[in-house]
Amino acid sequence: MADNTDTCLVVPLYNEGSVVGDVISAALAVFPRIVVVDDGSSDDSAAVARRAGALVVEHPLNLGQGAALQTGFEAARLLGAEYVVTFDADGQHRTDDAAAMVERLRQDDADVVLGSRFLDGRTRPGALKQAVLKAAVLYSNLTTGVRLTDTHNGLRALNATALATLRIRQNRMAHASEIIEQIGRSGLRWVEHPVHIVYSDYSRSKGQSVLNAVNIVTEQLYR
């Protein structure tokens, strides 16, 4: 289905009111079904996303991005979606990458298609960010048995099998590692797909603190 009506875009949203409207409007042109999970934003994010045309599920309080994704997965399941794409609300991800990833699921290349910004030279993160990301990749490859080039990429595409298998319990940022761990344990077929991450001034200003790596490792150990 080239019109992507079999696909549900899951967008975790937290205080992105200034950009989410444009992101949703643009994405709707490619993916007509979008579930936005507003994670207790204190601004008007949820209203903006709803006006832009997304189905908005609102957490009554802020739980974290991992929790928002899991809520989105359950919503997508209830909607009977054949494919699910996890997509950031801040405009970092490109819809044509997402569409290409869903196409690979339709070809049955894999159950999970994981975006990677390091498969080609298009994405240029800063030196420190690159070092931290590489360290995360090394750690993840050693501990999960799934060998990836980019472990903390928010752009992923899942088919119904993967959707029924994955269950995110890490509420905050450790969910990225958790997803990979579950892929490794469950024997889902996975493949990486080169994507371009758009580091705008906006996304850079909101970006993850490098210190967050400490939180992620702690959350993984003390689960």
Partner: peptide, 24 residues
């Protein structure tokens, strides 16, 4: 405890839009 709150909040959030969450 946080896990329990999460499940509770998720249930609430999904129930709120239950009418929109039926297969199309």
């Amino acid at each position: 405890l946080e896990g329990q709150i999460t499940r509770l909040a998720r249930r609430l959030a999904l129930d709120e839009v239950a009418d929109d969450l039926r297969p199309a």
